[in-house]
Computed example of a mutant assay.
Amino acid sequence: MTPAGAPGGTTGRSRPPGGGDGAAGSDEVAPPPLSLFALESARARVEWLSLVVSQRLLDPPRGSGEPVLVLPGLLAGDEATEPLRRILGGLGHVAHGWGLGVNVGPTAHILDGLVARVLALSEAARAERHDGRVQLVGISLGGILARELARQVPDHVGRVVTIGSPFRIVDHRQSRLAGVFQSLSHLHVSRERFDIFRQDALPQHVPTTAVYSRSDGVVSWRACVEDPGTEAHESVEVHSSHTGMPYNPATVYVVADRLAGDPAHWQPFRAPTRLRHLYPAP
């Protein structure tokens, strides 16, 4: 989970994490190496600069006015998602902040507020002759909450894109910020209402894309990927830090590409030839 927030191959297509890296074992509940955690801030700055330099060269697909709700990561608010929302707005989407202040986790205020926010955006979209489905983009902890929204109001959600979101977390040790999250647990709803360790499968008709990085310095990448082979639910790997992932050029292209597609006619992500170098080979 981020204090503010990936499979392509040689073909740039989405792929499940496979091989020895995905085997069961102690590595699955280990946090990222401390060396990666220490480099988070420096790597994030490089990724931000890379986006500034390369943004015009990405040339991602454009949207057609669909509402997009962007959810921030742990201890972040709308100011942290503003750069990504600005980019999406420039590509023809109507990108919204969540308007719920700082993300302190699954409080009643946040869970109830998100449902109300999606329903309001959905109603407004229908009034403008869109289908009324809201696209959700969640950064780290925000992605876990976005998936919960898709479970609660599936008929109002078009698709979900998560960025470095540990929605498959099974142990606090998989996050370097577990202590921060636990320190806020007295604010959270009961585990009967929302249990971060027990995330049910999403409705099949809500496509999902999980962007992750094996060099994530905050959360274990194994907690950030979809079940392999699940139709309309994919994982796309990028080379990125955790904190800089929302501003990484490869991530930005994936998000824009996924949001521009029709959820009713889902196809797996495939990077264009000119950008395949941005996505790790199998």
Rank of each mutant, 00 (worst) to 15 (best):
A116G: 10
E231Y: 10
L121Y: 03
G12I: 01
H93A: 15
P249F: 03
G113F: 04
P33L: 12
P16I: 03
L58H: 03
Q204K: 13
Y279Q: 08
R151F: 02
V94N: 07
R43I: 08
P282A: 14
T10E: 10
F37K: 03
Q174R: 14
G142F: 02
H186C: 05
R13H: 12
T209E: 04
V102H: 12
A250Y: 02
T11Y: 05
M1C: 10
L119M: 04
V68D: 03
A260M: 07
G9E: 08
G105Y: 00
S41P: 06
V70K: 08
R258Q: 12
H109P: 02
I144Q: 10
L36Q: 13
D112W: 12
G22I: 06
G179M: 06
F269K: 04
C224A: 15
S26E: 15
W48V: 11
D112Q: 13
S50C: 11
T11D: 12
A120T: 15
P228T: 07
V170Q: 13
H172Y: 11
S213L: 05
E47G: 04
Y247N: 11
H96S: 06
G105T: 06
S64W: 09
P31S: 06
T251S: 14
G63P: 03
V170W: 00
H242T: 13
P268H: 14
R129C: 09
A116C: 05
L177A: 04
V180Q: 00
G101I: 14
T209N: 05
P207C: 11
L275D: 01
A210W: 02
Y247S: 07
D262A: 14
P282T: 10
G164W: 01
I139C: 10
P60Q: 09
L136V: 10
G142K: 08
E82W: 12
V102D: 14
H233V: 06
G90E: 09
L58S: 06
V68F: 02
E192K: 13
H156F: 00
Q204E: 15
G158R: 01
L177G: 00
A281L: 11
L71N: 01
R147C: 01
H233W: 03
V238D: 01
S241Q: 07
L36H: 05
P33Y: 07
H239R: 12
P17Q: 09
E234I: 15
A4Q: 13
T273C: 03
V104P: 00
A127H: 12
A4K: 13
L71C: 01
P3R: 11
A108T: 09
S165H: 11
L184V: 09
E66W: 05
A124W: 02
G101N: 10
S215F: 08
V180K: 01
R15D: 09
T11Q: 14
P280H: 03
L114H: 05
V225F: 00
I87M: 09
L39N: 09
G19R: 15
R117F: 05
L58Y: 04
V53I: 12
Y247T: 08
V70A: 09
S122N: 08
P3D: 13
G142I: 06
R193T: 13
L202W: 01
V115A: 10
L177H: 03
G92P: 03
P246N: 09
N103G: 08
V104T: 14
V134L: 10
F181A: 14
G97Y: 06
L57V: 06
L57T: 10
I169N: 00
P203T: 13
R276Y: 04
Y253D: 08
R43K: 14
L259W: 02
D257N: 15
G5P: 02
G12M: 00
